[in-house]
Design a protein around this nucleic acid. Structure first.
Length: 559
RNA sequence: GGGCCUGUAGCCUAGCCUGGAAGGGCGUCUGGCUUCUAACCAGAAGAUCCAGGGUUCGAAUCCCUGCAGGCCCGCCA
């Protein structure tokens, strides 16, 4: 809560405590998130001790405390005493606090954090199945950045291993036709190569030889796979850019082999106490850890001595911690075990461990997405559809064409992001196109619209934000709005602590909704309380803008 | 077989960490634009919070046992 509000409530609670003590009553537990008012005194536990009904206790305590100056009302209901604090006294201070740049930001240590997200294999266009990854990753980055940390994002490019070798093989003889988006064009070459890999023995041999050359550190082949991946990535980056979720850095897995980091890791892992060998292949014996209900052998070399994906991942993370204080990985739920094993290996090497943020896959209404069964929905197609829909809705407005196109883009992409971010990451998610295309209710345009309304009021007012003066008592809508605004720091705090981005859209919707109610009830320009209301509008607009910004949604001044 | 995640109105979802009065949204029905933007607002109907047991004055929330769905258990990535 805003400090001012917390102080006010603490003060009142102290006074209440004095009163109950005088009456020889036990302290009444406080509920700070009551359905009505600012806090509630819970009267059930005292009922037994005092041998009175909870309602009687609530009624009595309400009478005792309602003359406290900082309280507007204290009403008994069921076994609760609901208290509304006097917002009139503190509103100017609260609004000033909200307008301060440090509002809701950390006063703790600023950390240098790397967020790895997306990291999809560069073998073709993004599909919706993993669309949560860039969106959640990007918004978590924006959240931590806003909170005050020093954040960068990175995409780990998987350009070694069979898929990478297959792609390189496919692209080696492929002539670019420059038709359409790069990744959508090149994926054909990859698909053909994959097919040949299955059907033709000599192709299989070539691709597997390439794999071995990659892992063995053949410079020429390493360069080839890296370039192939980059070529595909060119197209994929366009999608991320449109989503507003492009990473700051792209780190290529092949570089870890090329620069000898992988070899170093193998050498050091072999020195670990729990390292064992089997037919020439080395592994960490995790018998004591009892992972996933069984004894795990965590292999880090093949029997030919070459590295595995996990080995490279260890090397990558050691490198991360050379550059950053903290590493955060946004990963699909299928990586949970892998991530745990990685952590153990890093601990063995006396390294820090990354923090994992896991999300469940996006499914289609009919079931799982599958490339083979042709049940794939491309992210690009969804973005296009939703932007087109937004465009159609804007047809009726009299904005000029360029503004309209920009706005449709913001509304469309914003809706998509909002839709995905508002659901808890661990929850399975069925992508319902109808739902995503519904731009009403708990959605990005709802909050964008509130922001535009706030901007319209300020436009109509036409002057600089004035100094505040309270000429009239606050109305219920104003108090409700202030209450929500003062909850912003808590929301940020909870989202940061739990790395739960869905708190932000939840809050945004509540704020926008309360702003709309205020808009209905409280004329601003020309009102007796104009100066205060202008400031309230400005503060609401600010927090709406910030919260939408964290979600990667641009807040328009008109729509 | 084992491990992890999830289960809240017709549908989607918040609340679970830290027990206290079940919040939103979609869809359905009703009403509201001569007043700062109706992508909005107001109202109505709709919930054995997966099931059973335990702890507690009090359980959607904590504990136990089941059930259902997702994911994982490779010298693949």
């Amino acid at each position: 809560m805003s400090n001012k509000v917390t102080d006010q409530i603490d003060d009142i609670l102290k006074k209440i405590s004095t009163i109950t003590r005088k009456m020889n009553w036990p302290d009444l537990p406080v509920d700070l998130k009551p359905p009505i008012g600012d806090f509630a005194l819970v009267c059930f536990p005292a009922a037994k001790i005092l041998k009175q009904s909870p309602l009687d206790i609530a009624t009595k305590i309400a009478l005792e405390i309602k003359d406290i100056k900082k309280i507007i009302s204290a009403e008994p209901e069921k076994g609760y005493c609901n208290v509304v604090i006097n917002w009139n006294d503190i509103t100017i201070d609260v609004i000033n606090e909200i307008n301060n740049d440090s509002y809701a930001k950390t006063n703790g240590k600023i950390e240098k954090i790397l967020i790895e997200h997306t990291s999809a294999n560069p073998t073709g266009p993004f599909h919706m199945g993993r669309a949560r990854n860039p969106i959640i990753g990007d918004s978590i980055a924006r959240l931590l950045q806003y909170y005050g940390h020093n954040v960068e994002t990175e995409y780990y490019v998987n350009d070694t291993g069979r898929q990478a070798a297959t792609l390189a093989f496919g692209l080696s003889n492929y002539e670019t036709k420059n038709k359409g988006k790069v990744d959508h064009e090149l994926v054909e070459a990859y698909r053909n190569a994959s097919k040949l890999l299955e059907e033709e023995i000599d192709v299989k041999e070539q691709i597997y030889r390439k794999m071995e050359e990659i892992e063995g550190g053949n410079t020429k082949v390493l360069k080839e796979v890296k370039e192939s991946a980059k070529r595909m990535l060119q197209g994929m980056k366009v999608s991320l850019k449109r989503l507003g979720a492009e990473a700051n850095n792209y780190y290529h897995e092949s570089d870890l082999i090329a620069n000898g980091k992988v070899e170093e890791v193998i050498k050091n892992l072999k020195k670990c106490g729990i390292c064992k060998e089997e037919n020439g292949a080395y592994y960490l014996d995790l018998e004591k850890e009892n992972i996933a209900g069984r004894n795990q052998k965590f292999f880090f070399t093949r029997k030919n001595g070459l590295s595995l994906y996990t080995t490279r991942d260890i090397a990558y993370h050691l490198h991360k911690f050379k550059r950053y204080d903290k590493a955060l990985n946004v990963l699909g739920e299928d990586h949970r075990l892998q991530s745990k094993l990685l952590g153990i290996a890093l601990r063995e090497l006396d390294s820090k461990e990354p923090i994992g943020l896991f999300y469940s896959f996006v499914n289609l209404p009919g079931g799982k997405m599958s490339t083979r069964a042709g049940r794939v929905v491309y992210l690009d197609d969804i973005m296009e559809m939703i932007v087109e829909l937004a465009k159609k809705k804007l047809d009726e407005t009299d904005l000029n064409k360029e503004t309209k196109n920009d706005l449709a883009e913001n509304i469309g992409i914003g809706s998509l992001r909002y839709n995905i971010l508002k659901v808890q990451a661990e929850k399975g998610f069925t992508f319902n196109i109808e739902d995503a295309l519904n731009l009403q209710g708990d959605s990005a345009p709802f909050a964008m619209y509130s922001h535009a309304r706030a901007a319209a009021i300020l436009r109509n007012y036409g002057k600089d934000i004035p100094r505040m003066k309270l000429n009239e008592k606050l109305s219920d809508s104003e108090i409700k709005l202030l209450r929500t605004l003062s909850k912003w720091p808590d929301t940020i705090q909870r989202a940061v602590t739990n790395l739960s981005i869905h708190y932000i859209p939840n809050y945004t919707h509540e704020l926008a909704s309360n702003f709309n109610q205020f808009y209905r009830d409280c004329p601003v320009v020309g009102n007796n309380n104009e100066s205060l209301r202008i400031n309230l509008v400005s503060a609401s607009k600010k927090i709406l803008n910030i919260s939408l910004g964290i979600l990667g949604v641009k807040a328009p001044d008109r729509m």
